[in-house]
Amino acid sequence: MIELQHVTVRAGDYLVDDISFRVEHAQYAVLMGKTGIGKTTILESICGLRKISSGKLLIDEHDVTDALPGDRQVGYVPQDLALFPTLSVREHLEFAMRLRRQPRDKIAARVRELAEVLGIESLLPRGVQGLSGGESQRVALGRALSFGPSVLLLDEPLSALDADTRGATQDLLKRVNQQTGVSVLHVTHNLEEAEALADVRLELVREPPSHRLKLRHPGDIAVEH
């Protein structure tokens, strides 16, 4: 699970102020909001790439507000995917487990399992340069899931995909969420995507007159302020 308690993040000139919400274990949450409103800032704060000015961040009930990114058990797929250009697909899936010095046979088994779930077995020996958008997306997803994180953060994962690939990737994301029990926080501004995937929908809005960012919960969503 992920829980933000009155989290404030300064990002350059603007402020993501006093945000609170909770995503339960195995829940699929979709965070919506206009472009540039601070959705990515929230994801970066959760995975530890941006410092939280005040408030508390809990992952699996542990306070990780000041923890290093690698100690948070968070898988992150940024919007540009940021694949490692010098590594093969297999090395992407092995990367986090090698860092954790896991045994070779365990790494091999996990890579096989992930490649099968994501449908990228045939891509394993290839480099990442010539991969299509959908293939790259699945490799980035596999890399983020490889070490069995409790939380998966996805930043507009479907925005660069064509309609067919988007549909297939959408199914894959839901399947991964259900099979692994990982809590997902998925950022998008696409309403259809949110309706198809979300157990929980959150919306980041700028609230006049102070123009503070607030979370709104459309419909039947459990969100705290």
Binding site: R72, T86, A96, A144
Partner: peptide, 25 residues
């Protein structure tokens, strides 16, 4: 792209490991 080093840090790299294993190659 510095994002690759950021992602490497979320996967468990220290800053030094992200530099040596991702940026330097």
């Amino acid at each position: 792209n510095p994002r690759a080093e950021d992602v490497a840090r979320t996967l468990g790299c220290t800053r030094a490991q992200a530099f040596l294993q991702i940026a330097l190659p």
